[in-house]
Amino acid sequence: MYKNLAAALAAACFFSPVFSQTKAPAEPVKAGFVYVSPITEAGWTRQHDEGRKAVEAALGAGVKTTFVENVPEGPDAERVIRDLAATGHKIIFTPSFGYMEPTLKVAQDFPGVKFESITGYKQSANVATANARYYEGRYLAGIAAGRMSKTGVAGYVAGFPIPEVLQGINAFTLGMRSVNPQAQVKVVWLNVWFDPPKERDGAMALFNQDADVVAFHTGSTAVMVAAQERGKLAVAYHSDMRRVGPDAQIVAVTHQWGDYYTARVRAAQNGTWKSGNVWGGVKEGMIRVGDFGSKVPQAVQQEVLARQKDIAAGKLHPFQATRTAVRDNEGHEVIAKGQTLGDAQILGMNWLAEGVVGKLTR
């Protein structure tokens, strides 16, 4: 899935007794991308647009990409997806959880078009799903935060309490407490993915509650900018954000979509595309932790990178109870000693780990 597929077919030649001519090259495959926010200098949408650019770089004249940015989840998304399907796009990527249902609805009316519901979980004959194991990067970032925090209190600016976000909060907390067992993570829920002023306000509120390092699951750089202004630390998400937080960034959890997108467009191009589900992480190259800030000691960098190698090799799992059972923040055992959560349990996560200060908003 993540290696180059077969090279594009060479143009065929037709010969007749009277003349010879080369067939016109095949039309480039049209690939559409729908983005939930504007394309900013870093963040969720930026990483998906980098994936789109990687497709263009890999396939050249064999592909023509189109993107529509800042499309709200809901009826507007269905309109945009339908318009792309109706205008000859052979494969359409819809990278936002709230695009799942509109994607499925449009796909029913365009059985010849391939759809990629990124972060969705419902498939059909012409709708595939894909996501990344963000929680692996979150655990590693938690180790860095645990080593760097002086107060032992971290903040977390979160969008919505869906399993993907809970996985990240819990993995971050478990990573942090693996090096500082008394660490706390305070959560602020925004109930929005992209709203820079609200993201900033959430970060500022956490800094006022003794958090000296923050992580976030939102779409802009606002939290990193706030940390830079307050002289605090932050974990970059989606993209490297050192440009806006040169002193604040300790590490970045980055998403790498280029190889996946390229492979899927190639498959649509050569007729090998099939529906299915991909959930890739550090091992598959879809999640990477690095881009350390200048304040992070070499020893901490080496520790985080070593644990990243352990995850890639299957030696470390963020949701594994090795020495003691893992409990939620209400005292219930959620991972028995010696046990590791399976994918189904991770995908259905509905609890907050011990050490998290906050409650689920239902």
Rank of each mutant, 00 (worst) to 15 (best):
P297I: 03
N4A: 11
A183W: 03
Y156A: 03
I92W: 05
A130E: 12
I311W: 05
A267F: 08
L316S: 10
T254L: 04
E136N: 10
A313M: 09
K337M: 11
H89Q: 12
L233R: 14
E101Q: 14
M286C: 09
G219I: 00
A6G: 13
I169C: 06
D328Q: 05
A313P: 14
C13S: 14
A336M: 04
A6H: 14
M349E: 01
G112S: 04
T218P: 09
Y134N: 01
R52M: 14
I92G: 01
K64Q: 15
A336Y: 05
P197S: 01
G280D: 08
D201V: 10
F319Q: 00
I92M: 04
A141F: 05
V36S: 10
T151N: 14
V106P: 07
K64G: 08
G285N: 06
G355T: 07
F19I: 06
G142V: 02
I92S: 01
L305K: 00
E27L: 13
G146E: 02
M204W: 08
R200V: 00
G51R: 01
A11H: 10
A215R: 00
V304H: 04
A24N: 11
D291Y: 15
V356Q: 03
D328F: 11
G146W: 01
T218H: 05
R323K: 13
V253I: 13
P102I: 02
L84C: 08
R138E: 08
Y35L: 11
G159P: 01
A154N: 04
V153F: 12
G271C: 10
G348Q: 01
G281D: 05
G137W: 03
D247R: 08
K53R: 14
A325P: 15
K309P: 11
G32Q: 07
R243Y: 12
A145E: 07
V251P: 07
H317L: 02
F110M: 05
R52P: 10
F115R: 01
V29C: 14
A145M: 10
G280Y: 11
F93P: 00
H255G: 05
I311D: 00
I250Q: 02
I311A: 01
P72D: 01
D201W: 03
L190Y: 12
G276I: 09
A248L: 07
P72F: 05
A344K: 00
A222C: 09
G51I: 03
R52C: 06
K64R: 14
D259K: 15
P111H: 02
S220V: 03
L104D: 07
N131M: 12
G168N: 12
G245I: 00
A6F: 15
P95F: 07
G88R: 05
A61G: 07
Q298S: 13
F15T: 15
L305S: 07
R307L: 12
V265E: 08
P25Y: 05
M148I: 10
